[in-house]
Structure formats: structure tokens, C-alpha cells
Nucleic acid binder design. Structure first.
Lengths: 245, 245
DNA sequence: TAGTGGTCTAGACCACCAT
DNA sequence: TGGTGGTCTAGACCACTAG
């Protein structure tokens, strides 16, 4: 389609800015694996020529994608698909920090992995009630100290054979490189709750101890919810950081 | 200074992009009251002509300021200094939402206002230990239900005679319009704690009930810390929302 | 209808990086 | 040294708002 024709169809159909259309095309290429995490993108003029738009329009699309942590620019080298490396997880998805000292990526120990029908999880993940759900329980440590107990729910069809795999510390990297599911953003709801006897024994506290409960839904690049995670945290030496900007 | 001269001084001193210099000039005008909250800014070409830069550079500065909620653009009308109206507070600074139902601005009831030496607060606010600090206690309600008990600490020299004023529900609007102190952003640390007997009686819960403790430092446009706030929240029917993007 | 911000284009020059 | 992203400029046209 020529530029003139495209402009006309924009007028007749619902209007979307050209740079947003470019952005969606580029995101689709990351989501479907055409461009893998860590891979170098074509240069801005190359993308512009291929899509028949001006370089400034590609630049504006990449500006937004940089702000969303979907790509990383390195001056003099190029633009790369963002990877879920530990540093990014720590910055974007892990908000629990020691009250004093430097931020740290937590170590994890898997307690069990099961799967089956789980209607509540299916509902939270936008799936049919009887679809198979994988449930992963683990504890996490910061500074060698146990502080998080969490349960993770996943739609089984997106993560085939996950039960039979080695479960690494960095799950979002596994989702991306092992199953082609890239987490783009997440939404968390926080409450203060009292530890049950069971939870208390895992976290080595008394029953009834106040815990921070984090209820997270994580979304893939195509905006589908793909993970439901409930984390229980003892916050006697760590806190949850939230910046309001 | 001509453009050529400015370019040379940029090279010799530490380099800062022109659009960031423009941004800082514009923020300064908001911070010092040259442009009041709600006021219409000059048009982009006018600002560009006055500062002797191209319109695109002004646009990029305003792009960033829009993303930071410092100004609001309205197509066809102009660009306005952002106001701390209830809608903005609700969106940017008040993250406690009902578990079901629509977001709502909380009502407040002031318990007491005092002032005096408060070394811990002075330290958190970057002031000298003996500087006078105003302390404001209040409770807040959502849906007619009492759910937050909070203590707010302010450097007295920035808020003269605040003790003798009517204290409105929307404090950040008061800071801006009554004292010329505009809050730009804030940082919160969250923990789960057990209610003391005193706290429990205010919040109408049993002593030991888990509460969400929010420890906030709020910063003015010049990046000085100007408010320290500790909020204790019962989260049986509300939660704290955090979006990870 | 006039004026504003929103979008798109086009091209120049600079800073940074790999080689 | 060549290629990349980073910055800055200049101007056209469109969509929205107010009068």
C-alpha cells in the first residue's frame, strides 16, 4: 500500500498514529520470536525503509518501547531486544529490598510442582474453568535469610512439560527462552495478613505474625495474563519499594 | 548568548542536552510560582522564540514534563501547569483502592496538629536536628469506613502558620496554593506490622491485627524532601495497587 | 475561522563504540 | 574509520477547541 493510500484508509477507519502502528509491528516481531531476547535490531533507517515510513517515526516508536523496557538502546552499538536478566528483574519486577544494604536478587528453593484443575486460578488467568493449571510453590531468601513464601499459577498449555524441567531461580527468563512467553508488565495488589500456622512454619515465624501479601498478575507482550503469583513476605528486615511519579 | 556561543560552552562544561536545559528552565518557572498551578503556558512556538531554540526542542522538553505529570496538554487549547486536584492525587499519589468498586478520594478527620523539635523527622527531611517540625495526625475514611491512621511531618519554616489554618482534605493542593510548595514525586516503603493497642483503638480493630504500614517521603519540584508521612492501613477491604511497567 | 497541540517528514551534526 | 543512536532543526499538514 502506498503512503497516500494508507493515509486515506486511516481517515476512513479508526485513526491510529503511524508511530503506534510501527510500535505494534515491532512488538509483534518480539512476541512471535522473529526477534529473540538480546538480539540486535536492524538500524533505525533500515526499519524505516522496510516499513516505508520516515526514520523519525521509527524513532518515536522505539522511544516508547524503550520507556516500556521492551528494547534497550546502546549508543554507538544499536538497539537490542530487552532480556529478562537478573538486573532487569531486580529493577522492574522485584520490589522487595533490604532495609539497609544493597538490592539483591533472591535465591529460590522449589517446594513442589503440581498440576490439575484450579478454577480460581483459571478465572484469574482468563482461561476456561477446567483448563489444566500448573502450581509451583517455592521459598525465597535474601541475604541468606528466608523471607518469601510464594505460589505461582500458570496455564499448562502455554508451558508444556514445565513440571519435568529444572526450575531456575529466574522464572521470567525461563518463560521467555524456554517457552517463548515474554512478560511485559504486571499488576500487584498488596495487603497485610496474619500468618497461618502452616505459613508460619515455612517462614520460621509465629502464627499470627503480620505478613505482606503480594497478589500479582503478569501479562505477556500480547497483553494476555499468563501468571498469577501470591507471595507472602516477612517484612521485619525488608520492605516493598514503590515510587510515585 | 548566541546559539554558536552556547554550543561552545556546552562542549567545555559538562554536556547537557538542550531540551533538558529547557525542561529545567520551565520547571523552575513552575517551582518559583512564575507559572501557577492551572495556568496556561505560552504556546510552543512562543517559548521556543523566547529561549532561542527550535520548536521541536521545546516539544521534547514538554513531552518529558507531561510524562512526569508536571504539565497537562489539551489538544486545541494549550498546555497547562498540572494541578493537585483530587483526580490527579487519586491517580498518582493515593494507591489504596477498595477490593471491589470504584476508586474514591478518602475523607479525612484531623486529630491534632502540634510542633516542636523532632530529630528523627528532621533527619528524614534533611533538616538540622533542632529545626522545628510540624506534626499532623489524622484518620481517613473510604466508603464511610475508617481505614487509615496517619502522621505527617513537615519542616515548619516551609509552612508558616499552618497550625492556625483550616486543614483541608487534599493536603498537596494546600501545600501548592497556600505555601508555594509543589509536590513532584514521592517514594514509599511498605511493611506489614501488628497494630499497637493505641493504633488498634483508632482503627477499631483488635491489638495485634496486621496493618499495612506506608512510609512516604514526598519531594518538591526542586527535589527537596518536604513531607514525611507514615500511614497505617487496615487492608481487610482495601488493597494497595502497584503497577510494574 | 483562527490558534493550539499532534503527527509526520527530512536532513544535519555530534557522541559513542567496535575495528 | 565507519556505523550506530542522540540531538537539534525546520516545516508541512491534521485534529481539536473556542469564539
Amino acid at each position: 500500500m502506498s503512503r497516500a493510500q494508507r493515509a486515506i484508509s486511516d481517515l476512513k477507519l479508526g485513526f491510529r498514529p503511524l508511530y503506534r502502528q510501527v510500535r505494534e509491528i515491532l512488538i509483534k516481531r518480539i512476541a512471535d520470536g522473529t526477534w529473540q531476547p538480546g538480539q540486535l535490531l536492524p538500524s533505525e533507517p533500515e526499519i524505516a525503509a522496510e516499513l516505508d515510513v520516515s526514520p523519525g517515526t521509527v524513532r518515536k516508536a522505539l522511544d516508547e518501547m524503550t520507556a516500556e523496557n521492551l528494547v534497550v538502546r546502546r549508543q554507538g552499538r544499536g538497539t537490542f531486544v530487552a532480556r529478562h536478566d537478573d538486573a532487569r528483574i531486580l529493577f522492574q519486577f522485584f520490589k522487595l529490598l533490604p532495609d539497609s544494604g544493597t538490592p539483591e536478587f533472591p535465591e529460590s528453593k522449589v517446594l513442589r510442582v503440581t498440576s490439575g484443575v484450579h478454577e480460581e486460578a483459571a478465572g484469574r488467568l482468563g482461561r476456561q474453568p477446567k483448563e489444566r493449571i500448573i502450581v509451583l510453590d517455592r521459598v525465597r531468601m535474601l541475604g541468606g535469610r528466608l523471607c518469601v513464601l510464594e505460589r505461582i499459577h500458570l496455564p499448562a498449555f502455554l508451558f508444556p512439560e514445565l513440571e519435568n524441567r529444572e526450575i531456575p531461580n529466574n522464572l521470567y527468563q525461563l518463560y521467555a527462552t524456554g517457552f517463548g512467553v515474554t512478560i511485559g508488565h504486571a499488576s500487584e495488589q498488596l495487603k497485610a495478613v496474619a500468618a497461618t500456622a502452616d505459613e508460619a512454619s515455612y517462614l520460621q515465624v509465629d502464627a499470627g505474625t503480620p505478613l505482606l501479601r503480594i497478589d500479582r498478575i503478569a501479562f505477556a507482550l500480547d497483553e494476555r495474563p499468563v501468571e498469577w503469583r501470591v507471595s507472602l513476605c516477612r517484612t521485619d528486615r525488608i520492605h516493598y519499594l514503590s515510587d510515585l511519579r
